[in-house]
Design a protein around this nucleic acid. Sequence first.
DNA 1: ATAGTGGTAGTTTTT
DNA 2: CTACCACTAT
Length: 708
Amino acid sequence: MKPFRLTPMTPQGGNSAAAGEALLAELNLAQGEAARTTEGPLLVVAGAGTGKTRTLTYRTAWLVAQGVAPESILLLTFTRRSAQEMCRRAALLLDARCDRVQGGTFHAIGCGLLRQYGQAIGLEPGFTILDRPDAEDVVGMLRGDLGLGDKGRLFPKKKTVLDIISKSINRGVAIEELLVSDYPHLLEHGDDLLKVAAAYRMVKRQRQMVDYDDLLTRMVELLESGPEMQRRIGARYRYIMVDEYQDTNRVQARMVRLLAAEHDNVMAVGDDAQSIYRFRGACFRNIMDFAREYPGTRQVMLTENYRSTPQVLAVANQVMAGALERYDKDLAPTRAAGDAPALIRAPTENMQSRFVCQQIRDLHEEGTPLGEIAVLFRSAYHTFDLEVELARHGLPFIKRGGLKFMETAHIKDVVAYLRLLENPRDPISWSRVLRLHPGIGEVTARGIFEHLFGTDDPWTALAGLPAKWAGKLEALGQFLPPLARAAGATPQSLTERVIEYYLPQLVAHYDDHPKRARDMEQLVALGARYQQLGPFLTDLALEPPEATMADADRLEERDTLVLSTIHSAKGLEWNAVFVIWAVDGRFPSAYAEGSAEEMDEERRLMYVAITRARDRLVITYPVGVYERATGLILSRPSRFVEDVPAALLEPWALSDDRGPVERGGSGRAAGSSPGRGSGGGPKALSEPLPEADADGGIDAYFRQDSGW
DNA sequence: ATAGTGGTAGTTTTT
DNA sequence: CTACCACTAT
């Protein structure tokens, strides 16, 4: 294990602006140091719940209070929401100047700069952003072109192909190398994969398309295109702050390095224990490389946790203690003692769901707002059963992560029309739009858009297509070109007109069109927030609405339970947190089995989940779950919590209200309830599993299952 | 060449 | 469930 040494800080004199000083008095010592150290590179290692966001917010306010121009402060965050939130809070602390601080995701900032300066590297301002499914479509097309994956020829699926290309870029590893390390079974396709990757690169450049990775790599390319350009862009930002540094990849680290080349005024904030985006190329060692990358780096460590009870932290620390690779940094509690966290074994998935519902209802009746309760899980599909059960109990919830509004076919259809108005060179959107018209399939669509690309003005060409196509596309030829030429039309009216045209196609293509038709109005409402089409489309790609509008309304108008993937829960906290499906094989995912590094990442994921809880933590797992994919029956609790001592994480076994499951001994009196010491209603679903009884009672009962 | 059918396999996580 | 195949009737 590498030693991690804290550099002692020289205390600064108190001769700065009084307003700022008063602000910083509200921070603890370490936080204050972090906020006050504005010149030169600074690394803040901040454990969960230690006031990371608070520190960033105060530092922003402090900088502005010192007279720094807000526009020259750049705040790179993981989601746009968190950047906005920080600026808003800084504005509350100080004044409205803080709203002018530049904040956003790496991708959004990169996108903005590329739209402005990209022409230097051949990118027109109207370039199209490919989201993941779009990028897959492009790869799918190329695969066809290259004759790969034709009948009889095995070739990896487009999703896998894109995974490989993307990982190779984000980790900075050649495809050949990546195949050897991560996809040895695909080595035989190495040459073809290289061909696809090269073709993919080329077609994106030709057609002014940019995928998520390109927003970063082309940004780096732009910055490296010449010292002039680097200075020009770099001069915009005098102070750079990077949140969640542990989840940046090499390209992002490079981008920061280039942006800050002039001054090195970079503050990176992160927690190696919370790095959960390895699959996206993130490397938590970036944190440790920071000091090497920026000589003279000062370091501050935040370890005092203000969020969780000591009981919750004890479990979190225990989980992390099992990591193969970690840096010594236990969280120190500051809060008073609370209730014992519980580990619940449920005989079936449905009992797990019913248990969670019942607990939530109890908590709610005792006065915990539903908005202060979250259910967290490894993968989006883990909640299907729970969602049904919640509906039956009349508990309102929104689900974050998983299914996306933007990824539904009918929304993509409408957006494809809109995208063409912005970039008529986009073959993916042409293909999608053309195929919505009867009698046109993949082959014909391709013929048509290639014809269009061969002309000077695709819109004129579309209105006057050769006879073999004109019949089928008469309506489109009359509809789309005038729309493309209608300068100054609002996104809202454009969207409305596209929908009007599209509606018959929606009805023809989807049996469940009434349901889908309602989404159309949501799209119009989203568009109404914009003055121009370009920014609307950009935001749809980079910051897609995470919940449907109906859900968003619900969240605002009443108190609503949150169901969230752990990834989407990053940076958030709740009074009560349920972690469901903590069964070995699902969490950690069986996927991670082969690799120690991936297994460590799963462990960090559990750590993140646990540290979201302020007061109450309940971890549940169903047993006897048959997984068709692997042919295994899952019966053991997640290895990450299995070995946590019962004194820290109380094991409980669920039984039905038809009576207790066969068990020996009589532990605590029935009627108590997990997760809160004693007390609770008479209709408790469960009883504690006495430790001393482990071999005789319920454990023996269940051991039969685990023997499978 | 398209469009509809039926069967099947394989399911992270996100900008 | 659903995305992706292969196959068939037009």
